[in-house]
Nucleic acid binder design. Structure first.
Length: 227
DNA sequence: GCGACAG
DNA sequence: ATCTTGTCGC
């Protein structure tokens, strides 16, 4: 049984958070950051939105790579148990994301997640979390920093700056569009920082968010109206 | 003790 | 994430 299911409706009290923290620490040793050893033919983007207070709707968009043509769109919604707590996002969103993932006919070679990968207090952001559960390459693209410090990258598209936390480069701050706030790209699992950064840039067309994430974000709003 | 704090 | 008006720019 996936370990997160052992926490069916855990109340957000300090004791439970300590247990969740312990679980993340335990998983740290399983994270693999390496040059990709897969053929990137299909890439998926995922995102979640909320309907009211306790219902989550997750979306997965499958695209071809490197052409980025949409070939599949799936979604799933259900109840959420935990409230949002910085550092524990995956316990709130991963369960439903995994159910949406199961609906994909064709599984992707890499998943681009909205949120951080290893750029997390315990190196277990939601992208890494999903990667370990699925034993699948994942990378994170976040709109805001969680931990770490950085210097603003140049204002032109393509400019990058390292995000440092405890003397370690945990992500790249990437300018995906001229004069627009940068995004934070980090490896999730089974990929390295440089490759994740290259892929994010390749997917950065005319918007701030790379296509997989942008489309997942877009369709999350679309599907929400159908619920 | 005082901020910071993915989605 | 979500609540929300007008506004600046391609």
């Amino acid at each position: 049984m996936p370990y997160y299911k052992r926490f069916d409706a855990p109340p957000p009290d300090p004791k439970v958070l300590q247990e969740l923290t312990a679980q993340q620490r335990q998983m740290q040793g399983n994270i693999i950051l390496q040059k990709p050893d897969f053929e990137l033919k299909y890439i998926a983007g995922c995102d979640s939105s909320f309907i009211g207070e306790d219902t989550i709707l997750s979306v997965f968009i499958l695209l071809t790579y490197p052409r980025l043509e949409v070939v599949e769109k799936v979604w799933h919604h259900g109840a959420v148990d935990l409230p949002y707590i910085p550092g524990f996002l995956s316990f709130r969103e991963a369960p439903n994301l995994l159910k949406a993932y199961e609906k994909l006919q064709q599984k992707p070679d890499l998943i681009m997640v909205d949120g951080h990968g290893i750029s997390h207090p315990r190196r277990l952001g939601i992208a890494t979390h999903l990667g370990l559960h699925l034993n699948k390459p994942t990378m994170g693209v976040a709109k805001k920093v969680l931990v770490g410090k950085y210097n603003e990258p140049a204002a032109t598209k393509g400019a990058i700056a390292p995000l440092v936390y405890k003397d370690e480069v945990i992500a790249n701050v990437v300018r995906t569009k001229d004069n627009i706030k940068p995004v934070f790209v980090s490896p999730g699992h089974l990929i390295d920082l440089q490759s994740a950064t290259d892929i994010a840039m390749h997917c950065a067309l005319k918007h701030k968010l790379p296509e997989p994430t942008r489309l997942a974000d877009h369709y999350a709003a679309v599907f929400k109206k159908l619920v």
